[in-house]
Write a protein that binds this DNA or RNA. Structure first.
Lengths: 93, 93
DNA sequence: GTCTATTTGTTCGTATGTATT
DNA sequence: TAATACATACGAACAAATAGA
């Protein structure tokens, strides 16, 4: 797989660092990606809702959406209006 | 009407020039004004969203907001939180 | 069929930091 | 120093789709 998000730096349980060089939305995308790769978020299943991510990480909704948007662009998840974002079945990671 | 934005210089299809003497946000305000006057943006209807303007002109959101702010001050549009900016019905241009 | 709650989609409001001029 | 312009980040309001009672 072609990683745009640096998972050598942001593992599944890494905390967000507002002071880091990478923006928070990017760090968040890396963490969510790591969780998908680790199997914590399983294929065909929904990832946590925007509000749940907000609750866990204490970030703004726009930040969550920016992170998930990157996951969609990377082909990791697909988002369905009114339902949620699903981990793609055909992931070869 | 009392033009503060110089529409003799910036028509509806004028391009932005970062090198020009007038700041970009001012040029943008003039272009949007020209489009309202030309009827391209009609009375009572919304003008393009901030993101759409960003997409068309390739400027920052703050630049768009500064331009629209001038239109509001000039009485050309009214802005509604969560919905958009509407061309005023009572324009006498 | 209707109502309600949940969730994503879109839009504007505000503040801060950085770089450039 | 001040103005401009970009990016980031948090809030808030409203709309639309979905699902279940």
């Amino acid at each position: 797989m072609d990683w745009t998000v640096p998972n050598d730096r942001y593992g599944p349980d890494t905390e967000l660092d507002p002071e880091a060089a990478d923006p928070v939305w990017y760090q968040l995308a890396a963490i969510l990606t790591a969780r998908i790769v680790a199997g914590r978020y399983k294929r065909g299943r929904v990832i946590p809702s925007e509000n749940q991510v907000i609750g866990e990480f204490g970030v703004a909704r726009s930040t969550v959406r920016k992170a998930v948007k990157l996951l969609v662009e990377k082909g990791l998840v697909r988002t369905v209006h009114g339902r949620g974002s699903y981990v793609r079945e055909d992931l070869d990671v």
